[in-house]
Write a protein that binds this DNA or RNA. Structure first.
Lengths: 143, 143
DNA sequence: CGGGATATTGAAAATGACATTCAGAAGCTA
DNA sequence: TAGCTTCTGAATGTCATTTTCAATATCCCG
């Protein structure tokens, strides 16, 4: 299921409407590898679709994040940025040291910070491992 | 070297001045285990020091972050929060897969996000490992 | 210990990102 | 297609943060 499908299903489920603007914004958003802020995407869209308003872009990006096809990131420049999210994203692990349960998690904000750390040391990341060890919900209760 | 010493040295090095307000704010900030936002610390300070202005609190917190005795965190509630930072903080590693160089790094924002991930799964973190593998500055150049 | 250059302070106003409002337009369901 | 509901876009509101500015405090140097 691609992003458009996920988005449409989300709209339907929520009783929201599929509009030209929303589809146009999704298309522009998907197309790029860039981390758009609301303003940047708005300015970009303006070239071909001068009638789409800033508020609409903003509301639509929020919708993307809500339905899981995008992640809202914060690079500390005072603007939220949105990154298209894929289904088969890299994930890391929570490992229960008591029962061995392994939970997969994805946290793009950590990936992002890793990049910032690497840049700090002029380091080129090729791979990483990130594991959190502790007690899962069940095991924590039993103690 | 405690935080006050680090802060004072930073001020001196930058040609900035050691003022009563700054010391008062540092004291209040250090005392708590709380993650203060500018507004919260301002309101707290007001009780004993009604003449300290909001802007001064804000500027001083920024200074703390600049000189490394605090970290600015963003919990997504639209307000920046500041956490006192200790010297012997947990650190993780950058590992060069070519020359074996190991760089230690500290990134409280990653630690913070780890906590958020754990909370998501009702998981109690006891420890973690986080290693970034790739090429250090030198090795990257030689390729 | 002053004098004077320079940074700081605090109140108020500005800024800027984000959110909301509202009237007209468009989508959806039957 | 009717008719109800949601959307849209421009304008405006909101709120945290930043800046401004005139008065004040600090620090350096003789």
């Amino acid at each position: 299921m691609d992003r458009a499908a996920v988005f449409n299903e989300y709209l339907r489920r929520k009783g929201l409407k599929n509009t030209k603007q929303r589809m146009t914004i999704l298309e522009a958003f998907q197309g790029s590898k860039f981390h758009y802020s609301t303003e940047e995407l708005y300015l970009e869209l303006r070239k071909d679709h001068p009638k789409i308003g800033y508020a609409t872009v903003h509301r639509t990006l929020k919708l993307f994040a809500e339905c899981g096809i995008a992640i809202e990131l914060n690079f500390g420049d005072g603007q939220s940025r949105f990154e298209p999210l894929n289904e088969n994203q890299h994930h890391d692990h929570l490992v229960c040291t008591n029962c061995g349960l392994i939970i997969e998690f994805m946290e793009p904000r950590i990936e992002n910070l890793q990049g910032q750390v690497a840049a700090r040391y002029d380091f080129k990341i090729e791979s990483h491992r990130h594991e959190l060890y502790g007690l899962c919900s069940n095991c924590a209760k039993q103690r």
